[in-house]
Design a protein around this nucleic acid. Structure first.
Length: 714
DNA sequence: GAGCACTGC
């Protein structure tokens, strides 16, 4: 064998020498083919294609490493399913859509964006020749607003369905009805779909628009039936099968190395301490291999990091080679990259991570996983509308996902810091997101898709009635509905078209009437991203000084506007003398000097240009209020009137709609000013109720601008 | 005078 191998490589090297890049290409193709054939799913190619031919809905249970995401679309294309339409594959995350598309384009030997492409928000790398299209599930939902029958697709594959994101859940419901309608034929359903609106010429226009687009796609012939494939990890195939009327489920083997699961004998009272002990125990007693620890948040990660650093010097010098690497989403990207770098020779890496390491990124070299069994979860309280984060026990599925991270490159070990009996008491899977979030956007989208009766919609799992009703109330107050709770025209339809929280969508529509849409587009873009401020604890004062020149006495909204404009001016000025790339690099430096998170600012810039395009297409007039901030401030009051609060004698505030006692968050420019009347965008509950993104308004504006909520006292 | 799991349009 060894001599064979060496002969082979000499042979290849010779060809390389003779034919250069072409032989390189051939060698790479051969390597790719070999890799593809070795995947567990490869043996099932014909069977899978037959299953898809014979079943309109197919559930595929594929374990990690089966190759289903990259291979199945290629099998279907070769099986002829791309002839009558595009094969679409949805992913919950943007990076996944992009990286998988790149990989498949390479495997097919085509340029990305031609036969194989991807589409995510802000980026469409597809063309008319695209047959395999990877995309985020949220993007496909948006496409459905313009093409309710998803007529360009012959097959839709919903990948990672077990994650049960809101988008996946809504998409499954939509696909179920789309499939039914497409198999029935389109002609008689067009008029029933979303069109039962009693008012207005506008909506008729929109209906006509839709009918024509369907006709065009249809070219006079009936739309072909839609094939639907749901791909999921093993635990809950039955849920999907039942939802699709007992659809057939097939199983595809994965490729994972065995992982030893170890439990504690007793429940741990202090899991931070237990985590520390386990880290050192592995480090001192186990063979080489990196350690991945799952923790609940930044604070916990930083405190454990400190504790490790304190204890390390107490070890024998030869045992001190332990490199601690934290990772969480809000960490600047250059620091995040450290988890992918190999440690100095002889060192063991211990990675302290949040959930980000569960699915979003895969870290190489992990042999040991420590799982304390806790996770920080966003919840939703329908009665107050607050969405607090709480620490809860993981689910069984999550525990399995975490332990699986130890078996990607070889056999591994997972230390669960609770007794085995506790594992069996865990919930099978995490409560789907749709049951623990604000539903305003979901409802708006469903209404725009023609679902009139939200309470009667066939959700795979029903959200709470109260959560639906609360969100309907909000949409009603924003003017998105008619009295018959249909989407209003034009406001409701315009709101549904914008990729923003409904409150912000409405703010844009209001701003067009106040002649300050130019300004509001900026403010809403900034309110839609993570905080753009970045101040490490040790440089708090320095950052405050840097930001002082932007701050406005009128509040955080105008401050945000000032920062955006300053950054934009800086970028435009740079672009006059240097290339776009260099100018953007220079902007990042500017951000750093001013303690601004450049990732968030970039995101806001992208959103800004997208929503600016959206409102222009909708025919709204983008005008500016110029130097006069009064109309803009009145517009903020008219837009965010539901979140108004009045100062009380003790300098706290009372929120007018909920009656909650709140304080201005210390990060606000108004923290010390304590104006009489404010509006705010966010209510966070920690030890107290804090409001963030606050502006001062004149309280007399409320009855004038929002008489439906506020009446003048006699 | 305070902290923010993770995604997505």
């Amino acid at each position: 064998m060894p001599s064979m191998a060496s002969n082979n490589s000499t042979h290849t090297a010779k060809i390389n020498q003779l034919n250069g890049p072409k032989a390189d290409f051939v060698a790479r193709r051969q390597k790719i083919e070999k890799h593809r054939k070795a995947l567990p799913i490869a043996a099932a190619e014909k069977r899978l294609v037959d299953e898809v031919s014979n079943n309109d809905v197919l559930i595929i249970v594929g374990e990690t490493g089966s190759g289903k995401t990259t291979q199945l679309p290629q099998y279907l294309l070769n099986g002829g399913f791309g002839r009558n339409g595009v094969i679409g594959i949805t992913q919950p995350r943007r990076v996944a859509a992009v990286t998988v598309a790149k990989r498949v384009a390479e495997e097919c030997g085509v340029t990305l964006g031609q036969k194989v492409g991807y589409a995510i928000r802000f980026e469409d790398v597809t063309s008319t020749s695209t047959r395999i299209k990877y995309m985020t599930d949220g993007l496909l939902l948006r496409e459905a607003l313009l093409d309710p029958y998803l007529s360009k697709y012959s097959v839709i594959i919903v990948d990672e369905a077990h994650e049960r994101t809101v988008h996946t859940d809504v998409l499954l419901g939509l696909l179920k009805t789309v499939q039914k309608k497409r198999s029935q034929g389109v002609n008689d359903t067009v008029n029933n779909h979303r069109i039962q609106t009693e008012n207005g010429i506008e909506s008729q226009k929109e209906n006509e628009l839709q009918s024509t687009s369907i006709m065009k796609n249809n070219q006079g012939k009936k739309l072909s039936p839609l094939k639907l494939i749901i791909m999921s990890a093993s635990l809950d195939a039955k849920i999907f099968s039942d939802y699709f009327g007992g659809a057939r489920a097939v199983h595809v083997q994965g490729r994972q190395y065995p992982v030893d699961i170890l439990y504690t004998h007793q429940p741990e009272t202090d899991y931070v301490d237990a985590t520390l002990i386990t880290i050192f125990q592995i480090h001192l007693e186990e063979g080489p291999g990196d350690i991945l620890v799952f923790l609940t948040g930044q604070e916990e990660i930083e405190s454990i990091e400190r504790l490790i650093q304190e204890r390390l010097p107490k070890l024998a010098e030869s045992k001190r080679k332990l490199l601690v690497v934290p990772i969480f989403a809000s960490l600047p990207s250059e620091k995040q990259m450290k988890v992918f770098m190999p440690p100095p020779s002889g060192f063991r890496k211990v990675i302290l991570a949040t959930n980000i390491a569960e699915t979003s990124l895969t870290i190489p070299g992990i042999k040991y996983v420590i799982d304390p069994g806790m996770v920080k979860l966003r919840t939703y309280d329908a009665s107050t509308g607050i969405e607090p984060l709480i620490v809860v026990k993981t689910s069984k599925a999550q525990a399995l996902q975490r332990s699986g991270r130890a078996g990607r490159e070889g056999p591994g070990k997972c230390y669960r810091l609770y007794p085995e009996s506790e594992f069996y008491k865990l919930k099978a899977s995490t409560t789907p997101e749709i049951k623990r979030c604000n539903l305003a956007n979901v409802i708006l989208q469903l209404k725009a898709l023609g679902v009139d009766d939200i309470l009667g919609f066939d959700f795979i799992e029903e959200p709470e009635r109260m959560a639906i009703i609360k969100s309907m109330e909000l949409l009603f107050l924003l003017g998105a509905f008619t009295d018959g709770s249909k989407l209003s025209d034009p406001v409701g339809h315009q709101m549904a078209r914008l990729p923003l929280h409904p409150i912000y969508s409405k703010a844009l529509i209001v701003a067009s009437q106040f002649n300050c849409l130019e300004e509001m587009l900026i403010i809403v873009a900034l309110l839609s991203v993570e905080s753009i401020y970045y101040a490490p604890r040790e440089k708090l004062e320095e950052s405050r000084t840097a930001l002082r020149s932007f701050s406005s006495p009128e509040g955080d909204h105008l401050t945000l506007l000032n920062i955006f404009r300053a950054s934009d001016e800086f970028l435009e000025k740079s672009k006059l003398v240097i290339s776009q790339d260099k100018a953007e690099k220079k902007l990042r430096k500017w951000c750093k000097q001013n303690f601004i998170n450049s990732r968030s600012l970039k995101h806001a810039r992208d959103i800004h240009s997208q929503i600016r395009r959206n409102v222009e297409q909708m025919g709204l007039h983008v005008t500016s209020c110029g130097e006069d901030m009064l109309p803009l401030r009145r517009c903020l009051a008219a837009s965010f009137f539901l979140n108004a609060a009045l100062k009380q004698p003790d300098n706290t505030y009372r929120a007018l709609s909920s009656g909650l006692v709140v304080k201005i968050h210390p990060s606000s420019v108004l923290f010390r000013m304590k104006p009489e009347c404010i509006i705010f965008n966010e209510l966070v509950r920690t030890n107290q109720n804090y409001v963030r993104n606050v502006s001062t308004i004149d309280y007399l504006w409320l009855p004038e601008l929002a008489p439906q909520c506020y009446a003048l006292q006699e």
